[in-house]
Design a protein around this nucleic acid. Sequence first.
DNA 1: AGTGTATCCTGCAGGC
DNA 2: TGCCTGCAGGATACAC
Length: 273
Amino acid sequence: MPELPEAETIVRGLRGPLTGARIARTRVLRPDLLDTSPGRFARLLKGRAVLGVSRRGKNVVLELDGPAWLVVNLGMTGGLFPLAPRERSRQVTHPGVRFYLEGGGQLVYNDVRRFGQLRVMNAESWAAFSGRLGPEPLGPDFHRADFRGSLAASRTPIRSWLLDQRKVAGVGNIYAVEACYRAGIDPRRPANALNPDEAETLHRAIVQVLDEAVRARGTTLRDYRDPEGEGGAFGPRLRVYGREDLPCGRCGTPVDRVVFGNRSAFLCPTCQT
DNA sequence: AGTGTATCCTGCAGGC
DNA sequence: TGCCTGCAGGATACAC
């Protein structure tokens, strides 16, 4: 479910409730969400305070004292919900991990499909993890020249290329498809077939669509909820994603759905070449 | 190296 | 009502 804009919205929503909180105890209800045993996971977190909440690509990161990093990949249906003491939330339908905070509150990781993963990292593993990811598209290191060069090195379809987190961090299927539409580029074209103008247009389209989606607090197709239980408002502003057979807003041609790389892509066959 | 496929898992919508 | 199929914001592992 969550791509960069949804992860960013979650991070912003967690900062207030979690900054300064301390983890008293951790209860793992779904061990398959972890890369280690529940016992070790809980031990690594016990007594640690949250210094900050941030994001790397689609990952939500709790920076803990020690130091340590709790890195949460939300998969398709993951969500994080802070609860006040004795509060019950209707969002918590499939709790996977409960972090009990000093003072009686909780942070619940909820995940219907359990494709998410929670990992505790040290300085070294966190640096390695972050280093494997590409630049942040809304950050200062997303350079057009690097982007163009990186595209030129691959002949994989551009939509699939955009989903590779080593190339650009945080782009998922929705925003990859939407960026291709805005750039007027057929998502099936090989990355190295884009000319410099097209590469620049796509670069700009990625930044634009992600920025607009962050301001709309993300896209809720079905499951996504921010920490307050609210959905995102970007759904109605999607121009092709999920709009098979509906008219393209620019030319009126019905939107096509094509499947490759195991995922659906949507495009206007007239506007995207 | 890239690409197509399958896998993890659950829920929901649509067709019959 | 019920059963079946297909589909879903992600990430990986495999054979070719």
